Simulated assay, not measured.
Amino acid sequence: MGSFTSTAVTTGDGVRIAYRLDGDPDKPVLLLSNSIATDLHMWDGQVPALTEHFRLLRYDARGHGESGVPDGPYSLDRLGRDVVELLDALALQKVHVLGLSLGGFVAQWLAIHVPERVDRLVLSNTAAYLGPPQQWDGPIAELLAAPDMRATAETFLGNWFPARMLQGDDEVVEGFRRTLLATRREGVAGSWAVVRDADLRRTATLIRSPTLVIAGEHDTVTSAAHGEELAGIVPGARLAVLPTVHMANVERQEEFLDAVLGFLIERR
């Protein structure tokens, strides 16, 4: 897997952003951006294959993992600027970007607002818009009023994985459950506000990075139709539909890696 470093930077508004670098420093950098209610370990299973070709930069979004949890709501602009400040701190001028779910929104923001920093772009199990906005207000309020993350954790797991993975004691699912239960409610609610307020259906037409959109055929969070819509908005984007629910990188790891690596390392 090569060497790794793990540390943190502090953003301009005083929030700690934890990150980890894995792999050979001489290889091109691939930035991975996570789903809501996960941390950088959501990619652990893919690290060995990806570090054969890339140096991986993973990070915990604000409100998650080892990063700070400021009061919400958060904005997509702020989450995007967290990444820009991280790239600046590491003196990384241009990287490939792979974002899943909320990470896909952040990845779109980067390609729109700092296009010079984004080489190739992979948008997995995500959307340009998940409206109407008011549908998010109830879940945000309920989560902030709940005693803990238990009920929300089970809802997330049911939305992320197929029934066959949720039956029994799947080690991977248990890892995601532990992360969910350890995540602060304020971080999840603040990030839900990002999704509530984001509408990239017009601005995503500005994306010029070569783009691959990956959608899950059985995804109930960001549906295959959302993926098709996004691929139709981003100029020249390709679409790959996998037979998955939401966490395509986990459920169908080999097919996911085939799609990602085939796109990222193809000859120009």
Rank of each mutant, 00 (worst) to 15 (best):
F4P: 00
T10P: 01
G12Q: 14
G12L: 11
G14P: 09
I17N: 02
Y19P: 03
R20H: 10
G23N: 00
D24M: 04
D26K: 14
D26G: 14
L32D: 02
S33F: 11
N34Q: 15
S35V: 12
S35F: 09
I36A: 13
D39N: 15
H41N: 14
G45S: 12
V47H: 00
P48E: 03
E52G: 01
R55V: 00
A61V: 13
A61W: 05
G65Q: 05
S67K: 08
S67E: 06
G68D: 10
P73W: 07
Y74G: 11
D77A: 15
L79R: 14
L79K: 14
R81I: 13
V83L: 12
L87Q: 08
L87K: 08
D88Q: 12
A91R: 14
K94G: 07
V95Q: 05
V95H: 03
V95C: 10
V95W: 05
H96Y: 05
S101M: 11
S101L: 12
L102H: 07
G103M: 02
F105T: 15
V106A: 15
W109R: 04
L110K: 05
D119Y: 03
D119A: 13
L121V: 07
A127E: 10
A128N: 06
Y129I: 09
L130K: 14
L130V: 09
P132Y: 10
P132C: 09
P133L: 09
Q135M: 13
D137F: 10
D137N: 14
P139T: 07
P139W: 09
I140C: 08
L144N: 09
A146P: 02
D148V: 11
F156L: 13
F156N: 04
F156W: 11
L157M: 13
G158I: 02
N159T: 04
F161P: 00
P162Y: 08
Q167E: 15
E171R: 13
V173E: 12
V173W: 10
R177H: 10
A182W: 13
G190A: 12
V194R: 05
V195R: 07
V195G: 06
R196I: 06
A198V: 15
L200N: 06
T203H: 10
T203S: 15
L206V: 04
L206C: 07
R208C: 04
P210I: 01
T211I: 03
I214G: 00
E217I: 10
T222V: 09
A225F: 08
E228R: 14
I233C: 03
L239M: 11
A240L: 07
L242G: 03
V250M: 04
R252C: 10
Q253A: 10
E254L: 08
A259W: 05
V260H: 01
L261K: 04
G262R: 12
F263M: 08
L264E: 00
L264H: 03
E266W: 07
R268G: 07
